[in-house]
Structure formats: structure tokens, C-alpha cells
Design a protein around this nucleic acid. Structure first.
Lengths: 143, 143
DNA sequence: ATACTTGCAAATGATTTGCCAGTGT
DNA sequence: ACACTGGCAAATCATTTGCAAGTAT
């Protein structure tokens, strides 16, 4: 966390209370959380804050490379501390469950894409979507 | 296209003019198009129609398995005739370019995910996102 | 002191929903 | 005839933006 503060200073950005709160909330969340969850205080685990400012600051931190966000299916995007989440995610299109991909899986995926296309994919911005083991059984609808 | 009409009938749904227009537009689009593009008539290549009804009918066709939609980065989702697009897509997070994944690539990806997780991914609902060859050079921002 | 930030309200973009008139079957 | 649909307006969700007041530096 002091690293994040340093990053702000290093970029001439101010270390405001609101920004400290954003970091605190992301830290407390421990995993991908929506801007709304973070701003509403994570059920008391972090101080509440303004949603618009939350978005603005998440974006600021994202540009500094400290935060990233992923979209699990439809609905709100989820933000995480980059330090807490190196790889990509697999998300279930049905129930919303998700897990981080291990480095091995990530490498295998990147290699597969590179072998067949001219794209260099990261799986770091958007997750790999499919059905989790539990939902495979009850197949049917949309994403 | 007559297959789509038959599918409607088979499910007790009505074959209305609006629904024919949706199919016509999807057909004319030839690839993933937004609901707005489809409803506005694709620059004259299809009749214009109501946006809300377009969404409703795209959803209806999606439930019948005739249409599917993908999200290339942020912004509006794009709809395609399932018959025209079997596999998944690779999309560029930077410039919005996208290409279909060949079956080989798709299989390799599915295998990789299956080997490392308990998920059964399709890549058919959401695309694989990364940077296209052109954008790899100028790296930097968000998704 | 001054420019960067905040917080709140209002705007935007995408998609959905309510409702009643219209129309396939 | 009757239930399913279409069209239009209004609502909703996620996110962004305008602005005046507040505060790091």
C-alpha cells in the first residue's frame, strides 16, 4: 500500500483521503469487487465513499497500473488490486462464479492463440468465460 | 432463413413483420452488429425498425439458439446469426478489431482450460480479448 | 495561493420494461 | 376473437461529466 502512495506522488498526483479509502476498500475486498460495493463500504469493512469519485480514482489507479478491472458476464465491472491478481480469470456465464487462472493455464492459452492468430492476448483485461463444473450439468440459456 | 421461420412456428411464436426484418438485418449485416445498427437499417441495407423491439426479438432468437451476441471490449454488444458464426472471436481491446477463431484454435483453448481448471469454456459467449498485431506495438492503457 | 480533488447532481449509453393499440393465427 | 407483438415513452443500470466548494502541496 505504501507503494501505491509512492506511485501517486511519483506521478504528481495528490494523496487525498478519498484515494486512501479506495486503496483501503480494494485491500479489504481481497478480490474483484464492483465500484458500487467498494464505494458503499463493503458491508462495513471499509469507509463509505462517493461512487463517482470511486470510479474516477479506480480509473486513476488503473492508469498507474495498480488496479485492473474485469467483466464477469453482464453487469457491473469488477476492480482488483493488480498486486493481488496477476493472471486472468475463468468465469461462469451461468452462476457468476469465477477463479483465477494459474500461470500454466495462462501460458497455454496465450500460446494457443498466438499459434493460430496474429493476436497477442493477455486474458488480463477480460476473463475466459464458460460454465463452471457445477453448471455444466444444467446447460441451456444465454451469457 | 426459412429455418428460422420454422423455429418460430415450432415454438408457438408468431412470424411477424418485425421478426422477419430482424432476420433480414442480421443476414444483411453478415457479421456481428449492434442492436442499434440493425435497427437503424444498416445504412439502407435493411429496413429500419424499433430499437426496443429489436432487442426483444434478438433476445427471442437468442433463446431459440438462432442468434448469439458477443461483447468486444466496452460498449454495445454485437449480435450475429449463430449459423454464420460457429466459433469464438478474438478481439482487440485497443482498436476494436476482431476475427473469428478457427476450430483448431478453439479446440486448443478449450483443452488448455480443461487441463487446468474445472471449467468447460466455450468462447462462444464472450471473445478472447487482447491486442491485435497492429496494436501490440503501441501498448499502454485500459480495456 | 493554486491547481488538483471531491461530492453531488445531472448527463450519457446500453438495454429493459410498461402499456395500449395492432395483428398473426 | 384473443393472445401474442409492435412501437413509443419512460425506467433502469453502469459509468461519466459539469461544477462549485474543499484541500493537498
Amino acid at each position: 500500500m505504501p507503494a501505491a502512495i509512492a506511485a501517486l506522488r511519483a506521478n504528481g498526483l495528490r494523496v487525498s483521503t478519498a484515494r486512501r479509502v479506495v486503496l483501503e476498500a480494494l485491500f479489504a475486498a481481497g478480490g474483484p469487487a464492483t465500484a458500487e460495493q467498494l464505494a458503499s463500504g463493503l458491508d462495513g469493512r471499509a469507509p463509505q465513499s462517493d461512487l463517482a469519485s470511486m470510479y474516477r480514482n479506480l480509473d486513476t489507479f488503473e492508469q498507474l497500473g495498480l488496479v485492473r478491472h474485469v467483466h464477469f458476464g453482464h453487469g457491473a465491472g469488477r476492480y482488483v488490486l493488480s498486486a493481488r491478481s496477476h493472471g486472468g480469470y475463468v468465469a461462469c456465464a451461468r452462476c457468476g462464479a469465477f477463479d483465477e487462472l494459474e500461470d500454466g493455464a495462462l501460458d497455454a492459452l496465450r500460446r494457443a492463440v498466438r499459434a493460430h492468430t496474429s493476436y497477442e492476448v493477455g486474458f488480463t483485461h477480460f476473463p475466459v468465460v464458460g460454465l463452471c463444473a457445477g453448471c455444466v450439468a444444467s446447460d441451456a440459456s444465454r451469457a
